[in-house]
Protein backbone atom coordinates (compact mmCIF):
# COMPACT_ATOMS: atom_id res chain seq x y z
CA UNK A 1 0.00 0.00 0.00
CA UNK A 2 1.51 3.29 -1.07
CA UNK A 3 -0.60 5.57 1.13
CA UNK A 4 0.60 4.97 4.68
CA UNK A 5 1.46 8.29 6.29
CA UNK A 6 -1.13 11.06 6.16
CA UNK A 7 -1.13 14.60 7.52
CA UNK A 8 -4.53 16.22 8.15
CA UNK A 9 -4.90 19.78 9.40
CA UNK A 10 -7.73 20.82 11.72
CA UNK A 11 -8.46 17.44 13.31
CA UNK A 12 -9.96 18.53 16.62
CA UNK A 13 -13.53 18.52 15.34
CA UNK A 14 -15.79 18.49 12.30
CA UNK A 15 -14.75 17.07 8.95
CA UNK A 16 -11.06 16.93 9.92
CA UNK A 17 -11.76 14.75 12.94
CA UNK A 18 -14.04 12.51 10.92
CA UNK A 19 -11.42 12.08 8.17
CA UNK A 20 -8.69 11.33 10.70
CA UNK A 21 -10.78 8.60 12.32
CA UNK A 22 -11.88 7.29 8.93
CA UNK A 23 -8.32 6.89 7.63
CA UNK A 24 -7.10 5.50 10.96
CA UNK A 25 -9.78 2.83 10.62
CA UNK A 26 -8.37 2.03 7.19
CA UNK A 27 -4.95 1.38 8.70
CA UNK A 28 -3.15 4.62 7.89
CA UNK A 29 -0.98 6.53 10.33
CA UNK A 30 -2.49 9.98 10.78
CA UNK A 31 -0.72 13.08 12.02
CA UNK A 32 -3.16 15.85 12.87
CA UNK A 33 -3.05 19.34 14.26
CA UNK A 34 -5.27 22.02 15.70
CA UNK A 35 -4.93 25.10 17.86
CA UNK A 36 -6.16 23.13 20.85
CA UNK A 37 -5.47 19.74 22.42
CA UNK A 38 -6.14 16.73 20.25
CA UNK A 39 -9.40 14.83 20.65
CA UNK A 40 -8.44 11.50 19.06
CA UNK A 41 -7.08 8.57 21.04
CA UNK A 42 -5.42 6.03 18.78
CA UNK A 43 -1.94 4.46 18.79
CA UNK A 44 -1.52 5.43 15.13
CA UNK A 45 -2.47 9.07 15.69
CA UNK A 46 -0.13 11.94 16.60
CA UNK A 47 -1.33 15.41 17.45
CA UNK A 48 0.46 18.72 17.14
CA UNK A 49 -0.88 21.89 18.72
CA UNK A 50 -0.32 24.85 16.45
CA UNK A 51 -1.82 27.66 14.46
CA UNK A 52 -1.68 26.62 10.77
CA UNK A 53 -0.63 30.15 9.79
CA UNK A 54 2.38 30.11 12.14
CA UNK A 55 5.21 29.51 9.68
CA UNK A 56 7.83 28.43 12.20
CA UNK A 57 5.46 26.03 13.94
CA UNK A 58 4.41 24.42 10.64
CA UNK A 59 8.04 23.98 9.52
CA UNK A 60 8.91 22.44 12.86
CA UNK A 61 5.92 20.07 12.83
CA UNK A 62 6.66 18.77 9.33
CA UNK A 63 10.32 18.35 10.19
CA UNK A 64 9.37 16.26 13.24
CA UNK A 65 6.99 14.18 11.14
CA UNK A 66 9.68 13.58 8.54
CA UNK A 67 12.17 12.55 11.22
CA UNK A 68 9.79 10.05 12.78
CA UNK A 69 7.99 8.62 9.74
CA UNK A 70 10.57 9.23 6.97
CA UNK A 71 7.89 10.23 4.46
CA UNK A 72 4.46 11.77 3.98
CA UNK A 73 2.19 10.23 1.34
CA UNK A 74 -0.97 12.29 1.74
CA UNK A 75 -1.81 15.80 2.92
CA UNK A 76 -5.42 16.82 3.57
CA UNK A 77 -5.41 20.58 3.97
CA UNK A 78 -8.68 20.71 5.86
CA UNK A 79 -8.19 23.36 8.58
CA UNK A 80 -10.24 26.46 8.03
CA UNK A 81 -12.29 29.21 9.56
CA UNK A 82 -15.69 30.53 8.56
CA UNK A 83 -16.91 34.05 8.66
CA UNK A 84 -20.38 35.35 8.00
CA UNK A 85 -20.88 39.05 7.64
CA UNK A 86 -21.84 41.77 5.22
CA UNK A 87 -18.71 43.33 3.69
CA UNK A 88 -19.58 46.73 5.14
CA UNK A 89 -19.71 45.21 8.60
CA UNK A 90 -16.58 43.05 8.32
CA UNK A 91 -13.69 44.18 10.52
CA UNK A 92 -10.16 43.96 9.10
CA UNK A 93 -9.28 41.53 11.87
CA UNK A 94 -11.92 39.08 10.61
CA UNK A 95 -10.80 39.08 7.00
CA UNK A 96 -7.18 38.78 8.14
CA UNK A 97 -7.87 35.80 10.39
CA UNK A 98 -10.07 34.06 7.81
CA UNK A 99 -7.43 34.48 5.11
CA UNK A 100 -4.68 33.30 7.45
CA UNK A 101 -6.49 30.13 8.45
CA UNK A 102 -7.87 29.22 5.03
CA UNK A 103 -5.23 30.41 2.61
CA UNK A 104 -1.93 31.03 4.40
CA UNK A 105 -2.28 27.79 6.38
CA UNK A 106 -3.03 25.79 3.25
CA UNK A 107 -0.08 27.41 1.50
CA UNK A 108 2.39 26.69 4.30
CA UNK A 109 1.41 23.03 4.66
CA UNK A 110 1.46 22.54 0.92
CA UNK A 111 4.93 24.05 0.69
CA UNK A 112 6.48 22.18 3.59
CA UNK A 113 4.87 18.81 2.92
CA UNK A 114 5.76 18.97 -0.80
CA UNK A 115 9.42 19.26 0.20
CA UNK A 116 9.09 15.92 1.99
CA UNK A 117 7.03 14.29 -0.78
CA UNK A 118 9.41 15.23 -3.57
CA UNK A 119 12.11 12.99 -2.13
CA UNK A 120 9.93 9.93 -2.76
CA UNK A 121 8.60 11.28 -6.04
CA UNK A 122 5.10 10.58 -4.78
CA UNK A 123 2.40 12.56 -3.03
CA UNK A 124 -1.31 13.28 -2.89
CA UNK A 125 -2.46 16.70 -1.70
CA UNK A 126 -6.11 17.61 -1.24
CA UNK A 127 -6.95 21.21 -0.43
CA UNK A 128 -10.35 22.13 0.94
CA UNK A 129 -12.29 24.55 -1.20
CA UNK A 130 -15.97 25.42 -0.84
CA UNK A 131 -19.04 25.80 -3.01
CA UNK A 132 -19.27 29.29 -1.48
CA UNK A 133 -16.75 30.34 -4.14
CA UNK A 134 -18.59 29.38 -7.37
CA UNK A 135 -22.00 30.23 -5.86
CA UNK A 136 -20.80 33.62 -4.60
CA UNK A 137 -22.71 33.44 -1.33
CA UNK A 138 -23.76 36.83 -0.04
CA UNK A 139 -22.40 37.52 3.40
CA UNK A 140 -19.46 35.19 2.88
CA UNK A 141 -17.02 37.46 1.05
CA UNK A 142 -14.11 36.88 3.42
CA UNK A 143 -14.62 33.12 3.46
CA UNK A 144 -15.44 32.58 -0.22
CA UNK A 145 -12.58 34.79 -1.43
CA UNK A 146 -10.06 32.98 0.77
CA UNK A 147 -11.31 29.67 -0.67
CA UNK A 148 -11.05 31.13 -4.19
CA UNK A 149 -7.38 31.72 -3.38
CA UNK A 150 -7.11 28.06 -2.36
CA UNK A 151 -8.53 26.99 -5.74
CA UNK A 152 -6.03 29.04 -7.70
CA UNK A 153 -3.20 27.86 -5.46
CA UNK A 154 -4.28 24.28 -6.16
CA UNK A 155 -4.20 24.79 -9.92
CA UNK A 156 -0.79 26.44 -9.94
CA UNK A 157 0.77 24.09 -7.39
CA UNK A 158 -0.43 21.16 -9.50
CA UNK A 159 1.73 22.42 -12.37
CA UNK A 160 4.74 23.21 -10.20
CA UNK A 161 4.96 19.86 -8.41
CA UNK A 162 3.75 17.53 -11.17
CA UNK A 163 7.32 16.58 -12.03
CA UNK A 164 7.78 15.20 -8.52
CA UNK A 165 4.89 12.77 -8.83
CA UNK A 166 2.72 14.90 -6.56
CA UNK A 167 -0.90 15.60 -7.44
CA UNK A 168 -2.77 18.58 -5.97
CA UNK A 169 -6.54 18.77 -6.14
CA UNK A 170 -9.26 20.62 -4.30
CA UNK A 171 -12.44 19.27 -2.78
CA UNK A 172 -15.27 21.79 -2.78
CA UNK A 173 -17.65 20.82 -0.07
CA UNK A 174 -21.28 21.76 0.32
CA UNK A 175 -22.50 22.47 3.84
CA UNK A 176 -22.02 19.35 5.97
CA UNK A 177 -23.42 19.00 9.49
CA UNK A 178 -20.70 20.51 11.68
CA UNK A 179 -20.27 23.34 14.16
CA UNK A 180 -19.62 25.67 11.27
CA UNK A 181 -23.03 24.98 9.74
CA UNK A 182 -24.94 25.00 13.02
CA UNK A 183 -24.39 28.73 13.09
CA UNK A 184 -26.06 29.32 9.70
CA UNK A 185 -29.72 30.44 10.00
CA UNK A 186 -32.24 27.85 8.72
CA UNK A 187 -33.68 30.00 5.91
CA UNK A 188 -30.23 30.87 4.68
CA UNK A 189 -29.26 27.21 4.64
CA UNK A 190 -32.36 26.35 2.61
CA UNK A 191 -31.49 29.08 0.13
CA UNK A 192 -27.99 27.66 -0.21
CA UNK A 193 -29.18 24.08 -0.71
CA UNK A 194 -31.57 25.27 -3.43
CA UNK A 195 -28.60 26.41 -5.51
CA UNK A 196 -27.16 22.90 -5.61
CA UNK A 197 -28.19 20.37 -8.27
CA UNK A 198 -28.76 17.84 -5.51
CA UNK A 199 -30.59 19.81 -2.83
CA UNK A 200 -29.52 18.19 0.38
CA UNK A 201 -26.94 18.83 3.04
CA UNK A 202 -23.71 16.89 2.63
CA UNK A 203 -22.73 13.96 4.77
CA UNK A 204 -19.26 13.19 6.08
CA UNK A 205 -19.10 10.10 3.90
CA UNK A 206 -19.69 12.24 0.78
CA UNK A 207 -16.48 14.04 1.68
CA UNK A 208 -14.43 10.91 2.45
CA UNK A 209 -15.64 9.25 -0.74
CA UNK A 210 -14.28 12.07 -2.89
CA UNK A 211 -11.10 12.12 -0.79
CA UNK A 212 -10.62 8.40 -1.39
CA UNK A 213 -10.78 9.01 -5.11
CA UNK A 214 -8.39 11.97 -5.13
CA UNK A 215 -5.72 10.28 -3.00
CA UNK A 216 -5.96 6.90 -4.76
CA UNK A 217 -2.59 5.79 -6.08
CA UNK A 218 -4.31 5.18 -9.43
CA UNK A 219 -5.42 8.85 -9.60
CA UNK A 220 -1.94 9.78 -10.80
CA UNK A 221 -3.25 11.49 -13.97
CA UNK A 222 -5.69 13.72 -12.10
CA UNK A 223 -4.30 16.98 -10.78
CA UNK A 224 -5.18 20.68 -10.57
CA UNK A 225 -8.88 19.84 -10.38
CA UNK A 226 -11.49 21.47 -8.19
CA UNK A 227 -14.36 19.06 -7.66
CA UNK A 228 -17.54 20.28 -5.98
CA UNK A 229 -20.04 18.11 -4.17
CA UNK A 230 -23.79 18.43 -4.70
CA UNK A 231 -23.64 19.10 -8.43
CA UNK A 232 -22.36 22.64 -8.09
CA UNK A 233 -20.28 23.94 -10.99
Amino acid sequence: MKNEIMVITGTRKGIGKYLAEYYLSKGLTVIGCSRGEGSIEDPNYRHFMLDVADEKAVISMIRDVKKEFKKIDVLLNNAGAASMNHILLTPYKTIKETTEANYFGTFLFLREVSKVMLKKKYGRIVNFASIATPLKWEGEAAYAASKAAVENLTQIAAKEVAEYGITVNALGSTPVWTDMINRVPKEKLEGILNQQSIKRIGEMKDVSHLCDFLIDEESNFITGQVIYLGGVS
Binding site: K56, I59, S60, R63, K66, K115, V116, L118, K119
Partner: peptide, 18 residues
Protein backbone atom coordinates in the same frame (compact mmCIF):
# COMPACT_ATOMS: atom_id res chain seq x y z
CA UNK B 1 14.17 22.87 -4.87
CA UNK B 2 15.52 19.53 -3.73
CA UNK B 3 18.80 21.13 -2.60
CA UNK B 4 16.92 23.81 -0.64
CA UNK B 5 14.95 21.19 1.23
CA UNK B 6 18.12 19.18 2.07
CA UNK B 7 19.92 22.30 3.27
CA UNK B 8 17.05 23.47 5.47
CA UNK B 9 17.09 20.11 7.21
CA UNK B 10 20.88 20.02 7.60
CA UNK B 11 20.92 23.56 9.00
CA UNK B 12 18.31 22.58 11.54
CA UNK B 13 20.29 19.49 12.55
CA UNK B 14 23.60 21.33 12.88
CA UNK B 15 22.53 24.74 14.15
CA UNK B 16 19.15 24.00 15.72
CA UNK B 17 17.62 26.78 13.69
CA UNK B 18 14.55 26.76 11.42
Amino acid sequence: VSLISDLEEAIHDDFGKE
